[in-house]
Design a protein around this nucleic acid. Structure first.
Lengths: 140, 140
DNA sequence: AATCAAAAATGAAATGATTACAAATTTGAA
DNA sequence: TTCAAATTTGTAATCATTTCATTTTTGATT
């Protein structure tokens, strides 16, 4: 069962302003790892004064508070994910979609638990290639 | 035993121009995951006409040919690695250094072999936190 | 319900890595 | 030597992200 944005924010010590609520609601409702651009474009209709800077500030705050994670899987743009549980991500070189690969969470945990004298804060497993949809399209 | 740049380039089907040789030699001799900026700065002394565009072009070619890999572990900048064997990378939030974490290569392989209907091209395991050196400095 | 300082949001301008592109240079086969 | 293809170069554009000064909102206190 998915937690609501209000609870999620306050549990991470984030004051739930209207803008922050809107961004977090969007992240939860659209777990497709949106970019700043996409989030802003989606929300500015119902929240006309929302600035892109606020979206940047808000996401930065989420990440620092552990309420979201940054994906740097795409060189061009930064993507965001409200799911902070360890799972792998797959970027399709054809369509650009980023898939969640959660089926082997335990292995991801093991592979990302390597360093000993290191203080480990965040981990990412990034896979790249071509997704089933695009593979099928190519074999038309 | 480390292969020389010439062999490494030709084995990947890359014509070894002076610029390409210089960049590959630098990558092999300095496995610290340098940026375009760092590579250019290091080489322009002995190769004064080397342009940054050429460094960009050259690295792009290396990556497309499988002679190097891109690291997107750092949001700010792209880093390059001539070691294309699967291994994890650790970015220190304090000093910015990127460490190779090779000690558990088998687990990395397993964790990055997840998708089935997906065509998998490249994999990355990124860890972030604070390195031993910086941890020690903090406990001065 | 008015006041006011702190927090948050805004928008314009700056930054800086990367890319596009046209011109110049180099390469190597004929 | 000739010449077209490949490579390199430098400048200018692109564009995501950051900076920063100003404006707005919030919420505690009179």
């Amino acid at each position: 069962m998915q937690k609501d944005a209000y609870t999620y924010l306050t549990e991470h010590g984030i004051k739930p302003s209207p803008q922050r609520m809107a961004v977090m609601e969007y992240l939860i409702a659209n777990p497709v790892h949106p970019t700043v651009e996409a989030i802003h474009a989606a929300l500015v209709g119902r929240m006309p004064t929302l600035s892109k800077t606020t979206v940047y500030n808000t996401l930065k705050l989420f990440v620092e508070s552990g309420a979201a994670q940054v994906l740097t899987i795409n060189e061009k743009m930064t993507n965001f994910d409200a799911d902070v549980e360890p799972h792998a991500h797959f970027l399709c070189a054809e369509c650009g979609e980023i898939y969640d690969i959660a089926e082997n969470e335990e292995m991801v945990k093991q592979a990302t638990a390597l360093p000993e004298n290191f203080q480990l804060d965040t981990t990412s497993v990034y896979l790249r290639g071509i997704c089933p949809k695009c593979l099928q399209k190519k074999n038309k």
